[in-house]
Amino acid sequence: MRTFLITTACAFLLYLLLTTASGPLFLWSKEELIIGAIFALIVAAIVRKIFPVKNLRLLNPKRWFLFLAYFFGIFLPAMAKANVDVAYRVITGRINPGIVRISPNLKTDLGITMLANSITLTPGTLSVEVDEETNDLYVHWINVKKEALEKIPRDCKYVCGKFPDWARRIAE
């Protein structure tokens, strides 16, 4: 029931966002509000089996601010660096690729999803496969450093820096 209500609210908000400024009543026309509510209910009824909401942690506004701080303070600069790096490798063609395994020790699905997406968009790394039991990530690395290859599992700090700490802070 909780899942149903939360999904309905999210779908309705998304619909309202997409149909802004359609009429006089609080920016939305009456027809849009009614049809949006009906569609939100239908969607929530269809997906309630495949979208189990296990906990309400993410409804906490503190985590949203943490996420914004992470996104603008850490993620975007790392992404800019990554792109200059890739552009350099496109022009010169110097690559030294390999696939390494890292264990970030994250528990939740959302945390591992965030970490994998961050890894994909940041310098020289791309997540290829996830081990579903231990939540280990296999990462394709375009420029493997020698010092990271000394022990197994590989050291997180060479591959993704401080991202696991932030993912843990936001999602767990």
């Binding site: 030294n96 690729p97 290829v128």
Partner: peptide
């Protein structure tokens, strides 16, 4: 959507048996 589909393509490529070219290390293999 972009990083997620990249992840899906990478996994599909590895499971269908394509080796990374010029790789120095391959833990997954």
């Amino acid at each position: 959507t972009n990083p997620t589909s990249a992840h899906a393509i990478g996994r599909a490529a590895h499971r269908s048996g394509i080796k990374p070219a010029r790789a120095v290390v391959d833990d997954l293999e």
